[in-house]
Design a protein around this nucleic acid. Structure first.
Lengths: 110, 110
DNA sequence: TTATTATATTGCAATATTACGATATATAAA
DNA sequence: TTTATATATCGTAATATTGCAATATAATAA
């Protein structure tokens, strides 16, 4: 037990859940918003910006990356992280579709 | 340790993270999509629909409810759950805003 | 009142997440 | 090569999540 039963759900459901889970921590929301705000995007900047230790931030960046929400490329000694537009587009599309369906449907049963 | 440091982040960041976290499980995505699909929305239906035990589903419903993503009202012996449009609108707005900012910005540094 | 039915809560085992110190790695500068 | 700088990984403690059997609660039916 304590193990999510991913095999019982569709790939799409699992994919959305994985991305949502990656955004389910305020530090990772803060990282996303910081990357959106700045032009230069180096990991060190994020460490200075957030009140968390460097290994913790590195871990959060890894999670955002593996969820397809950010990308990172080596830039000399440092690493340039930036938003992965594809991942965010998927989230945007998902919620836009849900909202559209919700509007079509007369959600007045409760 | 092991405790999320919510006090270091803004209320808005925490609010989005809380809702994203609630959607960070495929069963909860499946519940949302089921509520969107059906007209009648009784907890028992969800228990029949998903391959999880009744207490597990009850727990997932509780999480979605406390995150403001669904609402529940007593309907005789059973409970009528349905989508909370306000919560989903917040998520939709958030990702729409992010996408808009991303388009304005020339995200070409990586 | 006594079933019956529907949902919630409790308790617990298995697993995952969060955070960080210590350390490793890898590039650039001296 | 040695040193400095930037980021990643390891190991680990504290806490949270997932899932379910057992049980509680609460409304209706008999």
């Amino acid at each position: 037990m304590g193990l999510t039963k991913t095999e019982y759900f569709t790939d799409k459901q699992n994919a959305i859940a994985t991305m949502a889970k990656a955004l389910g921590h305020p530090a990772r929301i803060a990282i996303l918003e910081y990357l959106l705000k700045v032009d230069t995007c180096i990991c060190g900047d994020i460490v200075n910006e957030l009140p968390l230790a460097q290994p913790t931030i590195s871990q959060h960046l890894k999670e955002l990356k593996s969820a397809g929400l950010i990308k990172g490329s080596i830039e000399g000694t440092s690493i340039c992280y930036c938003i992965d537009e594809k991942g965010l587009e998927k989230m945007q599309n998902y919620f836009a579709t849900i909202s559209l369906k919700l509007n079509k449907k007369n959600n007045k049963c409760c």
